[in-house]
Design a protein around this nucleic acid. Structure first.
Lengths: 253, 253
DNA sequence: CGTGCTGTTGAGGACGATCAATGACGGTGG
DNA sequence: CCACCGTCATTGATCGTCCTCAACAGCACG
């Protein structure tokens, strides 16, 4: 794969937004045993997968999901380039988390063996980055909980879109078109697909989403953020880089 | 305060369930500058608080909350003895997270300055414990999201109760009576108080909750878990202690 | 003995859930 | 090139649950 995985890549941006150094990127990339390409709709990790390796999304979009008793897919979160897909498996190891990862588009995945992960943790800077990645995930889930409980279907869908856009911004992806189907949104919000469709048509009629395509294409982000009551500060961990950079230096000595 | 904060205490149990050593407890307790008692309904952390110190709950129950535009309280999570109240503030530092912490009962809180926190992170074992605490929080939120989106009001309330009981079990608290009001449950689930009340009366009529008291007292946990479709494995990070203990030893050398 | 908070009960309306069916698009194979 | 198929998107109609408003009861404070 002759692609640039340097500091300008989504992964590089992700690490630096979490307070990592340029070094960290190198160390991480050297731990990669191989890269694989997973085609749309295929599994990156099966729900019963127990391979002792972690998956790092380099390109494409995936979702983590669980199955309900009736077999329906329930989407827990989306992953964008630079995100780890399955850190939870690493920490919780064998006991099948029953969480699967599915590719929503063609994806490029970097594989890192758990042995290498163990070694990576001995770098304080990388350990901090991983901790902060988890804290960011907590913040994302927390925000989703509040938006999901309170508020209408329209708000919830709008919030989900805002979150994805903001997270993609953070890693340098500015495509206004999201690689997510209405059914994905339904499974992620817990709304029936028909209701998702109706909220989307409302947004199209408001010129928030493009009416020229069946895809999800955002044309008015400000209005979208207004509908969602979206406050992107909860994602903005980048403000901390300065504080953390200092602290990491101290820790290293 | 002449209470035992040893390995048998909630904090001790919490640390060991996250794979910490007996050493870790000592190190952590030595970092405490002082303990304070906060009375019921008072704030442990104000929403605009910017004190450079972290709060560790030793006894009592608290909730973390946000305010909605209309001023209504939205409960994000509950904390039980052994939990950190506001690690998010430490990581996200100054920029007021707008998250407050309120005491639901009289609480005993240990205060640790950020300077000390920085120092604590230089112990790989403690750093791992904190990371795993965050991962556990992620797992909790994830589970809440699925239970909240799918499922009836009864299911959501039952799930919330199960989660609290299970988390209290994990730190050695087996009181069947939860120190939580119906209004707290309403603010935590996003349901109106009247609906919470109705679900609770259903559970009382099913002999899942005690009908002898106005408090929330669980008398049939199995049935409650059945109603909630509760699978406590997601909280069961204790299974990892063995794996992690090995790894920490390695990291230390 | 008030006052305020929590809990309890009732009735009405709104939103989302469910079921059913059709339309649009991309791929595959004849 | 067209027919076929599956997936996703769209539309309509009905039903149930949850949300809202309103009022009252129990209990703990001062």
């Amino acid at each position: 794969l002759r692609i640039d995985w340097g500091t300008g890549s989504p992964l590089g941006r992700k690490l630096s937004s979490l307070g990592g150094h340029a070094d960290d990127l190198d160390i991480l990339l050297q731990a990669v045993v191989r890269c694989v390409v997973v085609a749309t709709h295929n599994n990156v990790i099966r729900e019963d997968d127990s391979a002792a390796q972690a998956s790092l999304l380099l390109a494409g979009t995936t979702c983590s999901y669980k199955r309900k008793e009736d077999g329906a897919r329930s989407i827990l979160s989306f992953q964008h380039p630079g995100d780890f897909c399955d850190l939870h498996r690493y920490v919780r190891s064998e006991q099948g988390s029953a969480i699967g990862i599915q590719a929503l588009t063609d994806c490029t995945i970097a594989i890192i063996d758990y042995q290498e992960m163990d070694r990576l943790l001995s770098y304080p800077s990388l350990a901090s980055v991983l901790w902060r990645a988890s804290m960011l995930e907590v913040a994302i889930y927390r925000q989703r909980l509040t938006s999901r409980s309170h508020g209408t279907a329209l708000e919830r869908v709008a919030h989900l879109l805002c979150e994805q856009l903001a997270r993609r911004d953070a890693v340098g992806i500015y495509d206004p078109q999201l690689p997510i189907s209405q059914i994905d949104i339904a499974d992620a919000t817990g709304l029936p697909p028909v209701d998702v469709n109706r909220t989307i048509q409302i947004q199209r009629s408001l010129n928030v989403l493009s009416a020229m395509t069946h895809a999800i294409e955002v044309v008015d982000r400000n209005q979208l953020a207004g509908i969602a009551k979206f406050d992107d500060r909860y994602l903005d961990i980048s403000k901390l880089a300065s504080k953390w950079a200092v602290q990491i230096e101290r820790t290293r000595n």
